[in-house]
Design a binder for these strands. Structure first.
Length: 113
DNA sequence: TCCTTGACATTTT
DNA sequence: TAAAATGCCAAGG
């Protein structure tokens, strides 16, 4: 049951277009789990090996990366984002510019609701 | 069933 | 603007 939620979360995360970012709360909502932002974080920490999820496009609601600036994960995330032309300054992203505005019809198509 | 934990969010200092 | 307090809910032990 929770596994299904994880799958849905991962699918939603993968629906984020290149060059855009989203937040945990936003992903939770889109995945049909309003108010379960923490579950999103948990699911991202439980990604099975061999499963490809672009977790680097998910950050906190204020645009900050969810890791310590010095952490390796943060560095990797920063690099991955910059490869997609997303500007990362002082461990945070300009949400006003890069926040993803999901296209509902496209989302429905991707998630097969 | 109770208690702790968490890659969070929102409100208040 | 930044840090702290409070709320939230699912998972695991």
């Amino acid at each position: 049951m929770s596994k299904q939620n994880y799958e849905r979360i991962w699918a939603t995360v993968n629906a984020i277009p290149i060059g855009k970012v989203s937040s945990y709360g936003q992903i939770a909502d889109l995945a049909g789990l309003p108010g379960r932002a923490r579950l999103v974080g948990k699911s991202l920490g439980q990604i099975p090996k061999g499963r490809k999820v672009n977790w680097h496009r998910v950050l906190r609601s204020n645009g900050q990366l969810a890791f310590d600036k010095a952490s390796e994960q943060a560095q990797r995330q920063k690099g991955l984002l910059q490869e997609e032309n997303v500007v990362v300054l002082n461990n945070r992203v300009n949400m006003k510019e890069f926040n993803w505005r999901p296209d509902l019809s496209e989302l429905l198509h991707t998630l097969q609701f």
